[in-house]
Design a binder for these strands. Structure first.
Length: 217
DNA sequence: TATTGATCATGC
DNA sequence: GCATGATCAATA
């Protein structure tokens, strides 16, 4: 938290320069740049292993692009979906629950009109879901995991789910991953991931900071 | 214009 | 291919 507070209020360009990281002209070809920079600044273990960013304290790091008024501009990716087994897993042992039980949110200005190097880091927030938030997440997760477990992943669109949604998570629309239908037969389908809706993360910020009045799901 | 579906980069 | 880090951009 000391490190997080130290970068709060600073511009990405200055932070990058201090760490020998060059700033891309935009994020079209560097979508993970802000997240990767924050990992370096805060001392997270930057690997592709399925463990929390801060392994010893069980904390996941998430940067959150926000407007000048502090409203999230994008949904938040949580995890990919093991299509063949998600229907047989309990909520408490799910990837979603494990991933978001402790999150360090780092809001960062995300408006495209602001040059990447001039975007400022906001106030950090170490967060765990409240009982009410857990209930919301669990409700959506059980519905979505249930549909996938029935072998109906193809019927899911981003519209389903109040706080959590399922959307593609792939290199492109031709990507394929094994799925399992109701009869246990394999089939090829687009890889999917769970995402937190921006209305949900907006509520998290609103609960902890002074933001414009918002309606939460 | 908010949102969904598509896409980009990197490591192993 | 699948995990990490996400944002872009077409469209409803």
């Amino acid at each position: 938290m000391s490190r997080a507070r130290a970068v709060s209020g600073q511009r990405l360009g200055d932070l990058g320069a201090a760490h020998g990281v060059s700033v891309p002209p935009d994020l079209r070809r560097a979508k993970g740049w802000v997240g990767n920079l924050m990992e370096r600044l805060l001392g997270a273990t930057a690997t592709s292993r399925s463990v929390p960013d801060f392994e010893k304290i069980g904390v996941e790091l998430k940067t959150l692009p926000v407007s000048s008024r502090g409203v999230p501009l994008e949904s938040t990716f949580v995890c990919t979906i093991p299509l063949g087994e998600v229907g047989d897993v309990e909520w408490e042992e799910s990837r979603v629950f494990r991933k978001i039980r402790r999150v360090l949110w780092m809001p960062v200005q995300g408006e495209r009109q602001i040059p990447v190097g001039e975007r400022m880091v906001g106030a950090p927030l170490l967060w765990s879901p409240s009982d009410a938030q857990c209930a919301q997440l669990r409700f959506d997760w059980e519905e979505l995991a249930g549909v996938i477990g029935r072998g109906d992943v193809e019927s899911i669109t981003g519209h389903l789910g109040v706080v959590l949604q399922v959307r593609p998570k792939a290199a492109n629309a031709a990507s394929r991953r094994r799925g399992v239908d109701q009869d246990g037969a394999n089939f090829a389908t687009l890889p999917r991931g769970f995402y937190l809706r921006s209305s949900f993360t907006r509520g998290i910020l609103a609960d902890n900071f002074s933001l414009p009045e918002v309606r939460r799901p």
